[in-house]
Amino acid sequence: MKIVHVVGARPNFMKIAPILQAVARAGFAEQKLVHTGQHYDPSMSDVFFTDLGMPRPDIYMGVGSGSHAEQTAKVMLGFEKLCLEERPNLVVVVGDVNSTFACALVAAKLQIRCAHVEAGLRSGDMRMPEEVNRVLTDRMCELLLTPSRDGDENLLREGTPPERIHFVGNVMIDSLLSHLPRAKALGIPEKLDLDPGGYGVLTLHRPSNVDDPVVLGGLLGAVEELQRRIPIVFPVHPRTRKQLETFGFGPRMAAMPGLRLCEPFGYLEFLGLTSQARLVLTDSGGLQEETTAVGIPCLTLRENTERPVTVTEGTNTVVGLDPARIAAEANGILDGGGKHGRIPALWDGKSSERIAALFRR
């Protein structure tokens, strides 16, 4: 059996790494790792192969940036050629980036069985490119591997045949639990002259948040109030850094002594940072899950989430974009509030083993 695994952007790596390792241990398949190059900045991609112990990609497509249509088309052209040459029995795609959808569509057209890891997640907001990718990918894939029970419910409600749905748990938590001791041992807070539990972490990367100067300025307003009480570490995504410069927010941020801007971290460094924070403010889907897994209060800077289990069972609160509400919720956490939550079902570090067993069957 030949399996082709696809990664294209930073969130994909943490999900594919444990699956590669579980299938290798089981020894029933030849595996090829394809990196589409959708994220091509070394700080957003290359360091993850080292941190996660992943093999270097067998094939690097190097599609780079562009509009959604350009990026999707480049991935499809390259991946179709690859599939015709490699003739895989199974294509594995993860998450909701353009590479995920593009490769699933190619596999469907070539009648190659395709598995979608992290299937069934829905925000209900089709204005989000990721939601479009999620819905369409699930329609095309034969094996739908869900991380939480709400994923099963969403797929069934959309008319998906039950035999295509497999609840395997959250494979990204496999990576987190495997690497958490090593990440904490790095002493990242101390290296930044911070006390564990005495700082916040901010991440922003979604176009809806960083491409609008009014929205981005409002978020900075909430951070401006919060950094007076607690240091805020802000690893700046390349896209976000560009927009901050374009909108002229540099002097405003320089006037915030408690705001610490830095380059993006590798996986281990970032996990070491977030797992010891007092709170996390983010628009990242994966970080909502990671904070739930390690019990850190999370404020999601969006109007919705495709990961509602992190709200209903975990430590996440969706606070929207209103600066006053963000500041109020954050202050509540600093005053001793915030969710404690619990670990959702099958977020146990064994999802990759269940996936490998499914592929073997």
Rank of each mutant, 00 (worst) to 15 (best):
M172N: 00
I173N: 05
D174E: 06
L176Q: 06
S178P: 08
L180D: 06
P181L: 11
R182T: 08
A183S: 11
K184Y: 01
A185F: 10
P189E: 13
E190L: 09
E190D: 10
K191D: 09
L192C: 09
L192W: 12
L194S: 12
D195V: 15
D195I: 15
G198M: 13
Y199N: 11
V201G: 14
V201I: 04
L202S: 09
H205K: 09
R206Y: 01
R206K: 09
S208M: 14
N209F: 01
V210T: 14
V210E: 07
V210C: 11
D212V: 02
P213K: 14
P213L: 00
G221W: 06
G221M: 13
A222W: 02
V223K: 04
E224C: 06
Q227V: 13
R228L: 01
R229E: 14
I230A: 10
I230D: 06
P231K: 11
P231A: 08
V233N: 06
F234D: 09
F234I: 07
V236C: 14
V236S: 14
V236W: 12
R239F: 06
T240F: 05
T240I: 10
R241M: 09
R241T: 10
Q243Y: 08
F247S: 11
G248A: 10
G248E: 08
M253R: 03
A255E: 15
M256V: 11
P257E: 11
G258W: 10
L259K: 12
R260H: 09
E263Y: 06
F265G: 08
E269T: 00
E269P: 02
F270R: 07
L271E: 14
S275N: 07
Q276H: 03
Q276W: 01
R278Y: 03
L279A: 03
V280Y: 04
D283F: 03
D283R: 09
G285H: 05
Q288L: 07
E289F: 02
T291L: 13
I296T: 11
P297D: 04
L299C: 12
L301A: 09
L301M: 11
